[in-house]
């Protein structure tokens, strides 16, 4: 059986690796096979961060071009940059609040209009779920719960192979107890927005 491929991208500091570990451990707890790839080091200083997960039978965590079942983007520009990983059957969940590259003023190419990014993502995927994850995170109690908003959003996508129940269990194992309430709220809100 082919694995379910998850490509996650965004910007250093958004909690992408933590989110991916929560997903992977939840899959493991469900008794599924899972492999994951993450990149550390230089990339974290405000650069692009991406992780790749395969749930099911796979040796390598690297997702071939166009073979991601879902693209989970914590930042809209990074969603578009990762679009080569999806096909017309793929789902995209993206945060709509941009994080500007620090050098954008000196950049030859401007940051695209959000509406343009969303249109592109919509036209290239089976379905686009766009949510203002920063706003939802703030409303849930802390901007840093952004990653759990996105995790909740991913969990709402049709065919997503990891159950909500296991994701929440895995959140408890991986997040500090004092922020768990906020994070669970953020997760539920992300889930709710993408379930509509």
């Amino acid at each position: 059986m082919k694995p379910y491929n998850i490509y996650i991208s965004g910007v250093g500091g958004q909690g992408i690796i933590k989110t991916s570990i929560i997903m992977g451990e939840a899959a493991m707890k469900m008794g599924k096979q899972v492999v994951m790839s993450e990149i550390h080091g230089m990339a974290q200083r405000g650069g692009v961060v991406s992780t790749e997960l395969k749930i099911g039978q796979a040796q390598s965590p690297i997702i071939p071009e166009s073979k991601a079942n879902i693209l989970l983007a914590f930042e809209p520009l990074e969603a578009l940059r990762a679009v080569g990983k999806i096909n017309e059957e793929s789902y995209v969940v993206t945060n709509t609040s941009p994080t500007m590259p620090f050098n954008i003023n000196a950049s030859k190419y401007p940051y695209p209009e959000i509406s343009v990014i969303l249109e592109e993502l919509e036209s290239k995927s089976r379905k686009l779920f766009a949510l203002d994850a920063i706003q939802i995170a703030k409303e849930s109690g802390h901007i840093l719960s952004l990653n759990m908003v996105m995790l909740g959003g991913a969990a709402a996508v049709p065919g997503f192979p990891v159950d909500k129940k296991y994701l929440k269990e895995s959140m408890k194992d991986n997040l500090p107890e004092k922020s768990l309430k906020i994070n669970l709220k953020a997760f539920d809100e992300g889930f709710r927005v993408c379930s509509i």
């Binding site: 910007v11 250093g12 230089m42 990339a43 974290q44 200083r45 405000g46 650069g47 692009v48 071009e65 166009s66 073979k67 520009l77 990074e78 578009l80 940059r81 679009v83 080569g84 999806i86 096909n87 017309e88 059957e89 590259p101 620090f102 050098n103 954008i104 950049s107 030859k108 190419y109 401007p110 940051y111 695209p112 343009v116 592109e120 290239k124 995927s125």
Partner: peptide, 19 residues
């Protein structure tokens, strides 16, 4: 079957930087 999707836009880079 499943064509790779490419964007026509040239995207600004996001190089790492000093914090």
């Amino acid at each position: 079957i499943k064509k790779s999707r490419k964007t026509e836009l040239t995207l600004p880079k996001r190089p790492p930087t000093l914090c």
